[in-house]
Amino acid sequence: MSVGFAVRAGAFVLAVGAIALLPRFISDFRALQLGTVAIFFIALLGLNILTGHAGQISLGHGAFMGIGGYTTAVLTSDFGGLSWEMNDLATVPIAGLVAGVVGFLFGFPALRLAGVYLALATFALAVALPSLARSQKLAGITGGSEGIILPRLPPTGDWLYYVCWSFALPMFVLAWLIVRGRLGRAFRAVRESEIAAVSSGISLPLYKTVAFGISAFYAGVAGALLAIPTTAIFPDTYPVALSIILLTGVVVGGLGSLAGMAIGALFIQFIQTDGPQWLQAVLDRVGVDINETAPGVPSVLYGLLLLAVLLTARSGVAGLLARGVSVLTNRIYHRPIKRQATPSRREA
């Protein structure tokens, strides 16, 4: 076992300990927010496997979250002809599987689409799905525009926090295992060069659909968990904006970095709730008053920060941190840099 692995494992154990103890020191409201952060964290892990590792863009992950959310809502509520009335936490893995299967199937058309076209198709999915949920034809399942009310009352912050993080941490470990193993290596090969990947015996259809499936599974779990605190879901619970914000979180957190997704999730949550006040606090210094409660301010912040990351630091916050931290960790353990041995001159 290498020193690097020990350092990472140690950091993970510390993080788990901190996450377990944190609710003792914060208000219930903050715990609720941090529970939502765990939900975004799960969704971002999945999107990162797809976009960061397999190199396939998705502007439609909000739709996969929606599929997960609706699965949970249908299975738990006594709505319509289908009244299973299951326990909501028991439905979360099922929601993940349903979304995963849909994602896997969506991977087949996605196979033939590259770059721009894939972005188009996934974006259209995100726009089309809320209308599909709103449709009267499907109202028997989705509740149409009235949506579905879930049986659970609004949970306390601590409850949501512990539930969501109990899902998030194992799924983080799972994502890490996927990414560092054979599967992750194949994904990265597909990302770097499809032709080289095929030449090395990697089946594109298999790995692309599997990448879509895994990532939709994560999104489905996240969508199901998101349905629980909202207590009722509507077509607009999973809007186009959600898909776009997820992508923002992945890029800001750092494409390819799993731990960076925690930063991405914090970014998503707190730009939404606290970002406008922070901006106002900064602008107060120069005496500018923005109407910080206006509805569009978080979007402007998301957009401008995403733009800033794309134009200046494409590896995201995780990339910046890694650069900073490596200065320190290099003193603790040294990663041998494999240099090409200088070719010895052959004496003639």
Binding site: A241, G296, G303
Partner: peptide
């Protein structure tokens, strides 16, 4: 491609938010 698409997505969010604002 990925970067350019994301830049236009960033524009999408910014412009939409700006108008709402």
């Amino acid at each position: 491609h990925l970067t350019v698409i994301m830049v236009t997505i960033a524009l999408f969010v910014t412009v939409n938010g700006f108008v709402l604002w």
